[in-house]
Every structure is written in C-alpha cells, then in structure tokens.
Amino acid sequence: MDVFLQQLINGITLGSIYGLIAIGYTMVFGIIGMVNFAHGDVFMVSAFIALIAFLILTTWLGISSIVLALLIVLIVAMLFTSLVNWVIERVAYRPLRGSFRLAPLISAIGMSIFLSNFVQVTQGPRNKSIPPMISGEFVLFTHNNYPVTLSYKQLIIWGVTAVLLLAFWYLVAKTKLGRAQRACEQDQKMAALVGVNVDRTIATTFVIAAALAAVAGTMYLMYYGVVTFSDGFVPGVKAFTAAVLGGIGSLPGAVIGGLLIGLIETMWSAYFSIDYKDVAAFSILAITLIFLPQGLFGRPDVEKV
C-alpha cells in the first residue's frame, strides 16, 4: 500500500508533464491533422532554455528567491519556446499545408533531427545537471519505516499544471481565439469564409502548444535537475501515446491520457521491470491504436467515400 501510494504520487507528477506535452500533439493534430514529430524536441529545447535562464538568474543576477527565479524562468522559457515553434511552423510546415500527406511528416522528422542535433552542437553532448532547485518534502505517513512523501517539487508541478490547464481551458472554451481554433478544426475552408484568419489561428495553436511544452520542460528540469540533447524523443513518444490514448483531438483526453501513461510507467517500474518500462509505454500505444483507435474521449473517424 505504501509503495503503491508513493508510486501514485510519482506517477501523477510524471503524468502531469506528459499531459502538458500531449496537449501540444493533440491540438496540432486536431487542427491540421499532422503528427508534429518535432514536438518532443521542442520540449527538450524548452528545458535547455529554462536551464540557461535559470543559470543567468542565479549565477549572474544573484536572485536568491527560488520562487521568483522559477517564475521568471517559466515565463522566459514559454516566450522563447513559443518563438521557436512559431518559426518552425512558418518554415517547415506552412509551405507544405495542403500538399502531399507524407510531406509534413517527413519535414517534422527532419525538424526533430535538426533540433536535437542543433542543441548537441551548440550546447555540447554531455548531460547538463544543476543542483536541486527546491528540496524538502512533506511526509504524509510512515508505514513499516517506509515514509510516503510528497516533495515540494511535486506539489509545485501539480499546482502549476492545474493552474495552466485551467487557463488553457478558459482560452479554448471561452475566448474568441478558442472559438476560431475550434472552427478551424472542424472545417478550415468554411472558417476562412466566415472571416477566421486560418493562418494566424494555426500559428497561434503552435505557439500555445510550445508554451505548454515549455512549462513541461521547466518542470522536467526542476524535477530531475538534468537534461541532455536526446531527452526529447522518448518523452515525446510517450506524450504522443498519451494523446492517442485519450483520443487525439480531445483536450481533456490528452491530460487524462498523460496521467494514465505516467501512472502506468511508474507502476510498471515499481512492480515489474524497470528495464521494460519503455516497452510498456510503446505497447500501450500499439494496443490502443489497434483496438481503440479513437481513444478514450475521441470521436470515431468516419470514413467518407
């Protein structure tokens, strides 16, 4: 029971990070029907931007308040990552819109290779580790000398994820931008006819996706304290699994899928074999797509002749 509870806490933390990345996949897929392969690498780039911002703040400017530093890092990472994804959309995806269906996928794979190698070349191939930003934990209870803990870091991740998801939900459900986005998702031509700027809406979608990935990247850096250039691929695929599991195109589905993947991964590591935890995630991806292609919350894909 104690191990289970601890893994539950860890799993929700990991799942929050996956969920934030998964929203990026699901939004982009919903609006232009493309698997944005580079999204995992955008997440990795955001973690690097957060790392650099954190180092500037602490070692150069000498900001000692860790909460303030974290807040600034979060905002800086969101801004710069948004710019990165905005440019990626302009350069690599927009010229290919409405083109042959494999072209954007190959372009995205190329972008993914480019981003991870760009970071490797500019920042070096070694692991970048920083001393823990925040330490300390609540001991919830102790059972058989095994303390079940909830660390401050985990609490911050839960809190930030919850607040940002609420803000994001408000943006999509209640604002004009969100309405435009949903309109483009349903029918781009029709949306353009009623005066929605489709190009701008799609660009905004990429910006929002990147901002959420940047939150995930900052949280990832804070939680693990280490990041390297190849960290984009596996979290990216797992977040994509989460998006598929929740039903691609469905925003609550992405979050719940993320939490489920996080939980399955931590539970699998605790009770079965840590070596095969990625196999578990990939198997879930395959099994979901084969038996439940529309996911938990997605609409079934109606095929028209």
Binding site: V91, A92, L96, A103, I106, S107, M111, I113, N117, V121
Partner: peptide, 21 residues
C-alpha cells in the same frame, strides 16, 4: 563531423519544402 546530422535534418526539411513529392 558534428554538423553531419544537423545538416541532414535541415536538408530533409528543405527538400520537402522545395519538392513535397
């Protein structure tokens, strides 16, 4: 040599944009 894969990835994007088919 370290720019090998960097250029490889960028070339993939460029060729796709230039000739999507």
């Amino acid at each position: 040599t370290q720019y090998r894969m960097l250029i490889f990835g960028f070339a993939m994007v460029l060729i796709m944009v230039w000739r999507p088919r």
